[in-house]
């Protein structure tokens, strides 16, 4: 697993894709940060994170689309699948590599609270909880993106599928007002962005941790099953 992780991270660092995606992430992030800060003149990152949660929805599947599709496309899947490594090891190594790239992008965004801290007196609680939530949110996006990549040998298809699934997990929340209480509560709960709101308010609720954690585990498990199916299914 460690070998897979190291090689995958290396591939990211040697491919323009990761740099372009991080640049887009940081570029849009800086735009949101400065425009919101200058217009509201409030030292807080709520608006920034609310926008970036959507941006990441597009960035993450593009980051993960190559993870398995490229192996299929270039024939290196045959090397991995005929080597004495477990599927879970392959999936974990690759997923962690994508997660590290995502964390690097978030690392750059730590400049914003630094600026706020230098020139204002921000309320640190919500900022820290928002960062925590944003990491969980991104980790969920990446797991969904990986699953999409495990479905196909085409990177474009993987990217589009990943974005599609994530958009579905967002707009499902819109149904709740139409469906009323009961079912509405369920769709409300399923929405990835609704779960993120509490983090922005500075609330750390274990139900959100369970929600994101179970989505991550589910999609990674489905990815493992998918690779297994390639071997065992017809």
């Amino acid at each position: 697993m460690l070998a897979i992780f190291k090689r995958e991270l290396r591939s990211y660092l040697f491919s323009p894709l990761a740099y372009v995606l991080v640049a887009v992430f940081v570029g849009l992030g800086s735009y949101f940060f400065s425009v919101i800060l200058l217009s509201t003149r409030v030292a807080d990152l709520g608006g920034y994170f609310a926008n970036m949660a959507l941006v990441a929805m597009f960035i993450a599947p593009l980051l993960t689309m190559r993870l398995w599709s490229e192996e299929e496309q270039k024939g290196t899947a045959e090397l991995l699948l005929t080597s004495p490594v477990t599927m879970a090891g392959i999936v974990a190594g690759k997923y962690l590599a994508a997660l590290v790239v995502y964390l690097l992008a978030i690392g750059i965004s730590l400049l914003y609270p630094l600026i706020l801290g230098l020139y204002g007196e921000p309320d640190w609680g919500p900022i820290i909880s928002a960062y925590l939530g944003f990491i969980l949110l991104g980790a969920t996006y990446l797991a969904v993106g990986f699953f999409a990549s495990s479905l196909t040998s085409s990177q474009v298809l993987a990217g589009v599928t990943g974005i599609g699934i994530l958009l579905l997990f967002w707009i499902v929340g819109w149904l709740s007002s139409a469906l009323g209480p009961g079912v509405g509560q369920v769709t409300d709960y399923l929405s990835v962005l609704n779960q993120f709101d509490d983090f922005l308010k500075g609330i750390l609720n274990s139900t959100h941790l369970v929600y994101y954690g179970s989505l991550i585990v589910t999609f990674l498990f489905l990815s493992v099953q998918n690779l297994q199916r390639r071997i065992w299914g017809d």
Binding site: L2, I4, K74, G75, L79, T82, S83
Partner: peptide
């Protein structure tokens, strides 16, 4: 196993490629 197209990672050097395979083996 040597498949018809050798499964190699273009961005690795020969030594790194072999070290990677040695590790996953």
């Amino acid at each position: 196993y040597l498949p018809e197209t050798p499964p190699l990672y273009a961005e690795l050097t020969v030594r790194e490629q072999l070290a990677f395979v040695a590790e996953i083996k």
